[in-house]
Amino acid sequence: MNDKKVDWGAYGYLFPVVGIILCFHVLPIFYSLAISFYEWDLMSDPQWVGLDNFRRLADDPMFYKSLWNTFYYAMVSVPLSIFAALGVAMLLNNPISGIGIYRTIYFLPVITSINAVAIVWNFIYHPDYGLLNKLLALADIGPRLWLQDPFWAMPCIILMSVWKGLGYNVVIFLAGLQNIPKYLYEAATIDGASRSQQFRSITWPLLSPTTFFVFVMSAIGSFQVFSQIYMMTPRGGPMKSTMVIVFYLYQKAFVKFEFGYALAIAFVLFLMIFGVTLFNKLYLEKKVHYS
């Protein structure tokens, strides 16, 4: 006799989330893939073009530029945000007075709207009235055009993005740091290990699951960067220096109404993120100490 009881309550709890994921994630992925084989401007019926959109993509210099810019953003912003967050988390892990206030301050940018943050940073970077150039002037350094300069535009966006996301990673690292047993540090201190030796032999290896999680999430996020680019360099930056892949996709879809082509880009982006995440899972995860 089968005495297993079906827990309908569990299905009830699952239903809203599964429904949302199916409707707004799974179905659009397949629909997007289908549309990428068509030419479609929304106004007229989609025209079947087979693999033409993908062939066009292979010959599109702006697609390669956007790919390069995306990798540039990812290669700089991911390590920077990991090390900055780890540093701040280690500082905030000390028993100092007013620690709650510091933790709140670091977390504030995370809960602030990216649009509001971007407007504030636009002021900071303004060539004539911006805070950054005013500070540089105090050190007798001439003004820079920042977001209007093809060389500086991307570093400016990266700096703002790292600052904006710092608090989130700090919280995760803090949790990771607090999970490391205190007795390991006590034993190391008794054995005469210095602070840097303790970091290398205890903190860094035992923090690796946290670092791995932060790395994977930051890498995925960096491939999807969009809002700050749109808000701070609305045309993709001077000489397209901040034209990242999602922004290019957006322009093709919602400015030029080439939905088929835009969705071909989206599918390539999906494959890229999938590939990077798979690499992280199969290769990098081997270097993670889970206990």
Partner: peptide, 16 residues
């Protein structure tokens, strides 16, 4: 508008 967008890129490049 596609042409305009392209022109904006080139005029911006000239301006820089």
């Amino acid at each position: 508008f596609e042409i305009r967008d392209l022109m904006a890129d080139f005029l911006e490049e000239a301006s820089i």
